[in-house]
Each structure stands twice: as structure tokens, then as C-alpha cells.
Design a protein around this nucleic acid. Structure first.
Lengths: 173, 173
DNA sequence: AAATAAGAAGTAAGTACTCACTCATTATAT
DNA sequence: ATATAATGAGTGAGTACTTACTTCTTATTT
């Protein structure tokens, strides 16, 4: 991966996340990356190919985020880690996550089933902790944390929000 | 409001919601509305003016949705009505609400403070019901229902989801 | 007849993408 | 070791086409 190719990816990620895929032209990306416009097409074939190159990283980043939860076998610790997840996202990666959230509005990039393993693990944890409706509890907490992620990415909250501590108290973990 | 003007608004709403503002051209809107392209500019000046005409309805629709909650003075009934709100959105209006949700990713159209009266009312209700941290409880429930709305608009759930009943049990209302 | 609504045919700027080319590095042949 | 050939990153002007928007003309209403 050459320097200029990485510049293109970084510029595109930033612009797509903040202005939207369709709102950003390839010429604008080229200017931001300080690169000729043609180079974008040499490396990525077309504009969509550029988006897909960015999205290819997504799956492994998600997997890497979920691994410590899926391998945890103390149910309380599962809930703890799940709650921490959105608050632990690094601000330098906010652009990346923001793009993920935004693209979920395009059918093509919305894959709710990919969260199934996480929800199953949460369901297991809630069952172990004696919840009456572990499946619904898992869906509920998943919803809460999805929305927390959205608020953080939209900069409505900061990562030191007192809401994290509140959730910890609420779930007694 | 002439027929054709309404056609334009309906077509634009549908296309903006499902494909995105920047992804839709004025000529496409004209074709869908079965109208000449020039007519769009006669009625709305420019493309953005068309979007703003759609968004102008939003505030009153939101106000109208919140009124029965803000005027309710039984705290239990406040929580009940709040929980019902997203599930009661009419499928024929899904396009409209979907557009509202999507546009929140554009700074220009994200006004979190507009939900303040609702959150204050919820906080009041939770306090009356003896919650230990009514403010956080209000933020929590607001998050849950925002995410429920998103799931419904993205068609990940349908409005008969068992989740509504679960929330009613959970909040004992 | 006057005013308004609608349509058709433009325009200039912008779009994604291509093409012929340069330049530097690396592999191969002598 | 040195000349030669091949490769691939990088450029920027140019392509056909689309865009938002305008202007002029024609229906329709009052």
C-alpha cells in the first residue's frame, strides 16, 4: 500500500463520513488527498470501488471489537464490556464509525443479522443472571448501545458522559 | 396548493427518504411527479427549497405527536404514551420519518434540544414514580425509543413487534 | 384580457471516468 | 557490471454525460 493510496483512502473516509457519499465528488477527494484524480481510478476502478475498499476494513474492525465479549465467560463481565464498548471507541476512528452508522440507511450496507452472535451472547448472560426475558433484555441493551454510539458519533454527547456509569449501576455490573 | 405541487412534494419526499437528497436529481423528481422539471423551480426556487418545504411540516408533525404526552398529567400514562409513540407511526408516513432520521446526520438538520420538553416531561414522570435517577431514566427511555423508531423505519422490525409489550411490562405501565 | 400554471428547450458548471503519457524502480540480458 | 526491457505509480487534459437552474413559449383559468 503506497502513501498516496492511503491518502486517498483517508481523505475519502473523512469526506464520506462528514458530507456523505453522493455529496462528495472524486475531484474533491483528489484535492484533499493531494493526488491526481486519475490515481483514484487506477487504484480503485471507480468511486464505488473506493467506498468498498473502505468498507472491507469494517468487518474485521467489528469482529475485533466483539471478540473480547464473545470469549468472556463471566456473564456480569459480558454485560460490563458490552456497555463499555461504544464509550471506548477512539475519537480518531469516529469518522470510520460514523460512516458505518450512516450507511446503515442504505439497504445495501445494512446487515442487522451480523449482530446476532453478540445478541446471543448477551441473551446467554442475561439468562445466567436470572432475567425473566433474556432475549428481550438482550435486544433492549443492544438498542441502547446502538443509540449511544449514534449520539457519540453525532457529537451530541462526549465519551465521558455520566450515562455509562448510570448504565453500570442500572445493570449492577 | 395545486395538485402538481403536491405531486412534486410527495415524489421528492419518497425519493429523498429512500435514496438520499444528493443521490436524487431534480429531473428524476420531475419524472416521478409526472411534471416538467421547470415547475419544481417555479414552486420551490431551488432543490434545497424543495427539501425545506418538506422539512417545514416536520416541526408541526412532531409537536402534534408530542402534545398528548406533554398535556398528560398521570405519570404512568406519560410513560405508556411515550412507549407507544414509535409503534403508532403510520406506515404511510414512514417515508417522512425516515427522512427525518436520515437528515439528523447532517449537522444542519440535527436539533437534539428540540426533544428537551419531552425529556423534561419524562423526567417529571419518573420522579413522580419514585425513580432514583429520573433524569438518566428519561434519557435512557428516550434513547430506547429513538432506536425503536430507527429499527421500524429501516424495516428491521414491524410495528407489531413484541418489544412494545416487553417495554410495557418492564416499565410496569 | 390578464394573470397564473405548465411545459420545452436551453445553459454553464460539474460529474465520473479515460487516455496518452512521464518517471522512477526493478528484472533481465549481454 | 552495464545496457535494455518491463512494470507500475502517478499525472492532467480531455471524454461523454448529468446537474441544477433559466428563459422563453404555450395552456389554462378567472
Amino acid at each position: 500500500m503506497t502513501d498516496k493510496k492511503e491518502n486517498i483512502l483517508a481523505a475519502a473516509l473523512d469526506l464520506f463520513a462528514n458530507e456523505g457519499y453522493h455529496a462528495v465528488s472524486t475531484s474533491k477527494i483528489a484535492k484533499h488527498a493531494k493526488v491526481s484524480e486519475g490515481l483514484i481510478f487506477r487504484h480503485f476502478n471507480n468511486k464505488k470501488g473506493l467506498l468498498e475498499a473502505i468498507m472491507k476494513d469494517a468487518e474485521q474492525k467489528v469482529a475485533q471489537m466483539l471478540a473480547p465479549i464473545l470469549f468472556e465467560d463471566d456473564p456480569k463481565e459480558v454485560i460490563r464490556k458490552v456497555i463499555q464498548t461504544p464509550f471506548n471507541l477512539l475519537p480518531k476512528n469516529y469518522g470510520f464509525w460514523k460512516l458505518q452508522y450512516k450507511l446503515k440507511w442504505e439497504t445495501e450496507y445494512n446487515h442487522p443479522h451480523k449482530m446476532k452472535p453478540l445478541i446471543d451472547k448477551m441473551q446467554w448472560a442475561f439468562a445466567k443472571l436470572g432475567a425473566e426475558e433474556p432475549e428481550q433484555e438482550a435486544i433492549l441493551l443492544h438498542n441502547i448501545l446502538d443509540m449511544v454510539g449514534i449520539r457519540l458519533m453525532r457529537r451530541e454527547w462526549d465519551k465521558d458522559s455520566s450515562f455509562q456509569a448510570f448504565l453500570m449501576r442500572k445493570y449492577k455490573v
